[in-house]
């Protein structure tokens, strides 16, 4: 993987455009969600939190952690092994943890309004909390000192293990009785027949697009940061080796 080290600015033209698209689509989502879309017949205005809760959850669970898993597999596979995949996995997982944290935060507020409680130990909420802790654990494992190869391999294995919880979170609402509602779109029963009003569906769609753009933009910058950190660590290592060598020559 060759990336030109750095021009004067750290952003490319593409990421700048992507950044502006992200800001505009997020602003549009907020306007659609808070002003234009209607209240729900049962949930009232609290339904407006759907347009943050669902996009952050999808982007965290399926996209961020999906990319982390894929990149980890590609790292473990000898033919595709490269630092690039390891850094991609780490960057994506961090963004996933951020998004999942927001899912939990918005979910708590939504729960407070509709159910009357911030939190309850039903299967969906519990397995999601487990997922959050698992990926925080993954980010911690990445920092455990070892040789770079050992560090990356260890992280890749943990990443794949952590992803096993994603299908459990997804199916929790079908496998067990939960207070949390079932999937509106992503179930065999609902995929072709979602029960959601037009404006609400379009607002949600826009939210998913906005958060996808945000994910891509954050990824571009977070990956670059990870790459710079890696270069810096390499250089520190090289300096240390040179010093040792100089000492050895002197003695």
């Amino acid at each position: 993987m060759t990336i030109s080290p750095s021009s004067a600015s750290t952003s490319s033209r593409t990421t700048t455009i992507l950044g502006w698209l992200t800001v505009v689509s997020l602003a549009l989502t907020a306007v659609m969600a808070l002003v234009i879309s209607p209240a729900d017949v049962n949930m009232g205005d609290s339904v407006r939190l759907l347009y943050l809760h669902v996009p952050t959850a999808w982007l965290a669970m399926y996209v961020s952690f999906g990319v982390t898993t894929l990149a980890s597999v590609l790292y473990l596979w000898k033919r595709t092994r490269s630092r690039f995949w390891d850094l991609t996995a780490g960057a994506s997982a961090e963004i996933g943890v951020l998004f999942l944290g927001l899912t939990l935060l918005i979910g708590a507020i939504w729960g407070r309004i509709t159910w009357g409680v911030w939190w309850t130990w039903d299967a969906r909420l519990t397995t999601t909390a487990v997922l959050f802790v698992l990926y925080i654990g993954y980010l911690a494992v990445r920092k455990v000192p070892a040789s770079p190869e050992v560090q990356s391999r260890r992280a890749a294995i943990v990443a794949i293990a952590a992803f096993l919880d994603v299908p459990i979170v997804h199916f929790a609402v079908e496998w067990w009785r939960t207070l949390h509602q079932d999937a509106t779109f992503l179930s065999d029963r609902r995929l072709l027949d979602p029960q959601i009003g037009g404006t609400m569906a379009w607002t949600l769609f826009l939210g998913v697009v906005a958060f996808t753009l945000l994910y891509c933009w954050l990824m571009a910058h977070r990956f670059r940061l990870a790459w710079l950190e890696d270069r810096l660590a390499d250089r520190a290592m090289q300096v240390a080796i040179d010093e040792r060598r100089a000492e050895a020559v002197q003695s």
Partner: peptide, 14 residues
């Protein structure tokens, strides 16, 4: 808007 405080707090903090 009902529960406007909670909803705006959610959007703002996000």
């Amino acid at each position: 808007m009902n529960d406007a405080g909670y909803i705006f707090a959610g959007y703002f903090s996000t």
